[in-house]
Amino acid sequence: MKPAEYYQRDRTLQPPALVPDYKTSVARSPRYSLISLENSISEITGPVFGHNDIDPVDNDLLRNYATAGDPVGERIIVHGRVLDENTRPVPDTLVEIWQANASGRYRHRKDQYLGALDPNFGGCGRTLTDANGYYVFRTVKPGAYPWRNWVNNWRPAHIHFSVFGSGFAQRLITQLYFEGDPLIPHCPIVKTIPDPDAIEQLIAKLDLNATVPLDSIAYKFDIVLRGRRSTLFENRLEGN
C-alpha cells in the first residue's frame, strides 16, 4: 500500500493561535481562520538529512561546548522515540534541542536573566533518529527562570524540541517538561494547550532503568508526529 496524505491535524488538542493569558500571542495570532488544504506533493515531502550534516558529539551537551571541564548541574539523559500516529517509528529524522543551563540562563545575546552563564555549557544539541526512531541526548537539567508575562511568571524547567518527520506537514516544535515539576500547572505557555492529556504527553517521565548508575539520571520522552493514510484505493493524490 502506498502512503498518501497525512491525517488531519487534531486542532482540538493543539494550542490555538490566540491565548490572551500568553500575552505575546495577542498581536502575533492570525485572526482569520486557517484555510484547510488537502496535502499535495508540497506537504507530503520534506527535507532529508543525513549523518554528513551533523557530528556525533552534537547530541552530547555535556561535551559539545565545554572546554575546561563539565557543565554545572544535574547530569541527565533524555531519550525516547519519534513515532507517528500509526505507532510506527520515524527513522533518520533530525531532532534539535535547546535549553537554559542549570541556573535557568540561556546562552543568548538577548537573555538578561541574573542566573549565571556556564562557560562549559552551550545549550543546544541535534541528532538523527535511528532505524527504530530512537534518539538520545546527554545534558544537564535546565533550571526554571522568570519571564515577563505577568510580573511574576516562572517557566517550568523545559527543553525545546524541533522535529521534522518525513513530510513538511509533520514539522513540529514543542517543549519537554519534567515529571513532578510544580511550576507546570501555573505556566501560561503550557496552558495554551487546551487538552489536559496533551499536556501530560509533554511531561517526560523519570526512567530509572535508563539511568547510568553513579553518573546520570534519565528521562524518557516520546514524540508523536502526524501519521499517514494508506492508499487502499487509488485517490489520484499525484494526479496519475
Binding site: 494550542p15 505507532t87 538577548k110 537573555d111 516544535i173 494547550i193 508526529l225
Partner: peptide
C-alpha cells in the same frame, strides 16, 4: 492510534 504531540512556542531564544 497515538495522538500527535502538542506544539509549544519556539520562544524568544
Amino acid at each position: 492510534y497515538l495522538r500527535e504531540t502538542a506544539s509549544q512556542t519556539a520562544g524568544p531564544f
